[in-house]
Write a protein that binds this DNA or RNA. Structure first.
Length: 662
DNA sequence: CTAGGGTTAG
């Protein structure tokens, strides 16, 4: 503000004439320019500076006007409408003013506007330069606008700018992201000297389309590789689930930076290797490297998926200890971690303290409540949202309704999401509603909905219906849906398991056996059930049939004892489904227990009396385990929290929070 | 005169 007053007073207090520099107006302009670049901390200041610029006529100066435009492109309080209004105030914009406008449109998330501004620029006779095109290619990338991209490319060639690395790398990215790898490669070949960044962009493009061979070949022939080249390889390999190869590059690279660690840890997460991700995070600690917010956020995601509450808490305290700013993303990661580790209370603490809540943060909290079956709270929170909900929000909301059996509420939100909130329902929303209807036993309505979908129902939609058939023992429909599913997604072992279990429960043993035989015939491998439990910061993992855990003997003894105990208290073992989730080989060794029973026994064995046992399972719980766990919670006076693939089960005193509805 | 490119997070 002081600076503003000073400049306002400037014209009234000119320095003595003999000291007036010849370019006084220039220096005033420079001062103005400095002022507006320092004014970006609030819209109010910026508007005052803007008024001053208009009043003094400096808007005619392209240098000043360009800087002003840049300020209005600020993502915090900039807005496209003011940006464009400022442009209209600039007489005969020059190339710099146009470039600032184009970049502003891209930064303010209206890339098509950027392209149309370019056309206006060309039409007005301003000649684009090498600074114009990178932003335009970026705009085409975001909008997936191939036609415009081709035209812009031809302009680049026409202006003789097709040797500029900045432009070419943006062009490569555009073509590659649109799957036009040949065009991207041609662009790369068109520059004479090899440019590291262009090569990296090309490698990234190959990786995104799964062409690891081409990516590796290019990487090998590169004369000079930057750290980013290695990083690009690592994240590309990880996104193609090639963790071993990525690790190889990670270990081989001559120097690692922040991004290398982040790419490796997040890459493991993306490939579903959460334990490996944690190991890299721990390795990073051992090597004394300070994790960036990217790494912390990825590590929190690993904790969330592993149910590693202690580790997650440690990261939270690390963040506090080191006074790392809890930005919107990091706060959301924390909310998600706490919710997924079964601590809604702690998730809520973080959520409540987060000032600038973006839609992601709301989604994490609403999704967390949904997972725990707390539909009323999820709906209440949804109604308090002060930002526009997005598609994910409605997935969370509809799931909340489905978990709690709120059919009418769910249907209401399904209708209003489009009408009131202008969010177009996608196939996943239809899946949620099919799940909602099916679980409540409205099979006709669910089928009608599937038939009326504007898009082709995917396997998740049919899977939701099959799940409902299991709950209600609807064998006829299961048969029909199963056939569709095994056709649509013949490689997914879970579908065979579910269908076979439905038959088994209806005592149709021959049909159950047929499904199993079909699976074997098609060579589909079962996904082994795995349960994880976090003990003092170390995640222990159990698989049915895997006796590698050092305490396995004690665990089995404990389990035998537990089973006798609960059978005496009325638990009737249901063996019809127990054995199918594990592979043939394991079944022959006659293992009686699903992984979560092993994990629970381990917990009872090792944790202090009364401590809550938290288990995370990769599949859904079976009925036998569910009813056994209920009784265990009563007999052993333990709270047991099991997170399955879809939701939470909070067992306490012989009851489960899902009210046996899952 | 100013400015532009690749790899990492919810």
């Amino acid at each position: 503000m002081g600076a503003l007053r000073a400049v306002t007073e400037l014209p009234n207090h000119p320095p003595p004439l003999e000291h007036l520099p010849q370019n006084f107006t220039i220096s005033q302009k420079t001062f103005l320019n400095l002022l507006i670049t320092k004014c970006t901390n609030s819209l109010e200041n910026l508007e005052q500076a803007h008024a001053l610029i208009l009043k003094t006529g400096h808007i005619q100066d392209h240098y000043v006007a360009g800087s002003l435009l840049k300020c209005y492109a600020n993502p915090y309080f900039g807005s496209l409408s003011t940006l464009l209004r400022v442009l209209e105030q600039v007489p005969e914009p020059n190339v710099f003013v146009w470039n600032s406008t184009i970049k502003g449109c891209v930064d303010l998330k209206d890339p098509f506007k950027a392209i149309s501004m370019y056309y206006r620029m060309v039409f007005s006779g301003s000649r684009p330069n090498k600074f114009t095109y990178p932003q335009l290619f970026k705009a085409c990338t975001v909008e997936r606008a191939l036609d415009e991209g081709l035209q812009i490319h031809s302009h680049v060639v026409k202006h003789g700018l097709n040797a500029d690395g900045h432009i070419i790398s943006a062009g490569i990215q555009m073509y590659a992201s649109l799957g036009r790898l040949v065009e991207a490669r041609n662009m790369l070949e068109s520059i004479e000297e090899s440019d590291v960044i262009c090569c990296n962009a090309m490698i990234d493009g190959y990786m995104k389309f799964g062409d690891m061979k081409a990516a590796t070949e290019l990487f090998e022939v590169m004369e000079e590789k930057s750290v980013s080249s290695w990083n690009t390889m690592i994240s590309g390999l990880c996104s193609n689930e090639m963790i071993v190869e990525a690790t190889h590059y990670f270990n081989k690279m001559p120097e690692k930076d922040e991004v290398s660690w982040s790419a490796m840890i997040d890459g493991c997460n993306k490939a579903g290797c959460f334990k490996e991700a944690m190991e890299f995070f721990n390795q990073m600690q051992r090597e004394g490297r300070r994790p960036s917010k990217f790494v912390l956020s990825s590590a929190l995601a690993s904790c969330a998926n592993l149910g590693a509450l202690d580790q997650g808490k440690w990261i939270h305290s690390y963040i506090k200890r080191n006074r790392i700013v809890l930005d919107a993303v990091l706060a959301t990661s924390l909310v998600d971690m706490y919710a997924k580790c079964g601590r809604l209370d702690l998730a809520w603490d973080v959520f409540e303290k987060t000032k600038e809540r973006e839609v992601f943060c709301w989604n994490a909290m609403i999704g967390g409540l949904a997972m725990h079956g707390r539909a009323e709270d999820a709906i209440e929170l949804f109604l308090k949202m002060n930002v526009k909900p997005n598609d994910i929000t409605f997935v969370a909301l509809l799931n909340a309704c489905a978990h709690a059996g709120f059919v009418h509420q769910g249907l209401k939100y399904f209708v209003t999401m489009k009408r009131t909130y202008l969010v177009e329902p996608g196939v996943e929303h239809y899946g949620c509603v099919v799940n909602l209807l099916g679980k409540a036993g409205y099979f006709n309505e669910a089928e009608n909905l599937i038939n009326s979908m504007p898009m082709k129902p995917n396997s998740a939609v049919w899977g939701a219906l099959l799940g409902a058939c299991r709950m209600h023992g609807n064998v006829e429909l299961a048969e029909k849906v199963g056939e569709i599913l095994l056709d649509l997604e013949g490689e997914n072992s879970g579908r065979y398991t579910l269908l076979s279990n439905i038959y088994a429960k209806a005592r149709k043993w021959d049909r159950a056996e047929e499904v199993r035989a079909l699976m074997k015939e098609r060579g589909v491998k079962t996904v082994a059930g795995r349960s994880m439990i976090d003990l003092k910061g170390v995640v222990h993992e159990f698989k049915a049939g895997d006796s590698s855990h050092p305490q396995m003997k004690d665990i089995h003894l404990k389990l035998e004892e537990m089973m006798q105990e609960i059978e005496a208290k009325g638990h009737q073992p249901d063996t019809s489904q127990v054995l199918f989730d594990i592979s043939e080989e394991e079944r022959e060794t006659s293992l009686r227990y699903h992984s979560e029973k092993l994990a629970i026994a381990f917990g009872i064995l090792n944790m202090e009396p009364g401590a809550t046992i938290r288990v995370v399972k990769n599949l859904r719980v079976c009925e036998d385990c569910h009813s056994a766990t209920k009784i265990i919670s009563r007999v052993y006076a333990r709270e047991i929290i099991v997170r399955d693939r879809v939701r939470y089960h909070h067992f306490r005193n012989g009851q489960c929070s899902c009210k046996d509805f899952w």
